[in-house]
């Protein structure tokens, strides 16, 4: 392109700088500041200035059983929701792939859950989970199954929270995979049909391998978002009962804004950042190979 290369500002090249400047101030500076916080004992409840403790917060972290438990909860939550959403999303993508009027309407309806405000739909589910007059226990009663105190007891709380996430995000995986499969060249499938491949063979040897790049994209996005889950759990259980649904984000939030222990909370938040960044890079590498 023969556009002028002179003068950086006031020319089109300079139009990127306001954005760069904004991101530097609002995200890079806080990240650096947060790193500084991790090295200090910093409580907002007393007037004392932050005290330098070096890697003291990190040592405390390794001895903090509540941290390990919340890490375990986060991993359990992430593994379950991602696994179920990928499988269900794939099944749906294969089932709702025809262009009949009925299936088109179904596809449109499936878009709704992922767009609704997470807080709002968590409230909807909280009402349905209510042990006294929630619809879920009523329907179970109808089937002669004993209802549960879904969000009030440690054992069913995590599965209940997982179910809400699956309800909201399976349609997203479905949508990604559906559009991925739709973008594949149709002649491959025709060739398979001519060669007499069965439905399962077509899926196993043609659809699945060709869809792997889209599966990895869905996996990456769902991993990043479920590992840092906050809104849904905050509204449904606030991490309770007995910390059964306390994920890393919820624990960090509590340490920071309930106990006002800013240094330690910053340390926790850095751990989340490191885990997500590291794991995402592994996914991106896989994506590059596929």
């Amino acid at each position: 392109m023969a556009f002028s290369r002179h003068r950086r500002f006031g020319t089109p090249q300079g139009m990127v700088f306001p954005s760069v400047f904004f991101i530097l101030i609002v995200s890079v500076y806080p990240l650096v500041y947060s790193l500084y916080m991790t090295l200090h004992d910093w409580s907002l409840t007393n007037a004392q200035p932050p005290m330098f403790v070096g890697i003291g917060n990190f040592i405390a972290l390794f001895q903090d059983s509540r941290f390990w438990y919340s890490l375990r909860t986060t991993v359990l939550f992430t593994v379950w929701v991602v696994m179920v959403e990928m499988i269900l999303g794939m099944v749906l993508a294969l089932s709702i792939s025809r262009n009949t009027r009925f299936q088109q309407i179904c596809r449109s309806i499936l878009l709704i859950p992922m767009m609704i405000t997470p807080v709002v739909l968590s409230l909807m589910w909280k009402y349905m989970y209510n042990p006294e007059y929630g619809i879920i226990n009523y329907l179970l009663h109808f089937l002669r199954i004993e209802g549960l105190i879904w969000l009030g007891e440690p054992a069913p709380a995590l599965p209940a929270v997982i179910l809400v996430d699956i309800w909201q995000w399976t349609p997203f995986v479905f949508l990604l995979l559906f559009s991925g499969i739709a973008s594949l060249p149709p002649d491959v499938f025709e060739a398979a049909q001519v060669d007499g491949a069965s439905g399962f063979q077509t899926f196993r040897y043609i659809t699945l391998p060709l869809t792997i790049p889209f599966l990895l994209v869905a996996l990456l996005i769902r991993f990043m978002d479920s590992f840092r889950i906050f809104d849904t759990i905050y509204v449904l259980t606030k991490g309770g009962p007995a910390n059964a649904t306390e994920t890393l984000s919820i624990y960090t939030y509590k340490v920071g804004f309930n106990y006002f222990n800013m240094g330690y909370a910053a340390t926790l938040s850095y751990i989340i950042l490191v885990i997500i960044t590291f794991a995402s890079q592994q996914f991106v590498k896989l994506e590059g190979k596929a």
Partner: peptide, 15 residues
């Protein structure tokens, strides 16, 4: 920035 978990910057932002 898309990968940045909001919780990672919420404490410094608050302060």
């Amino acid at each position: 920035t898309r990968m940045l978990p909001p919780i990672a910057i919420i404490l410094p932002i608050y302060i």
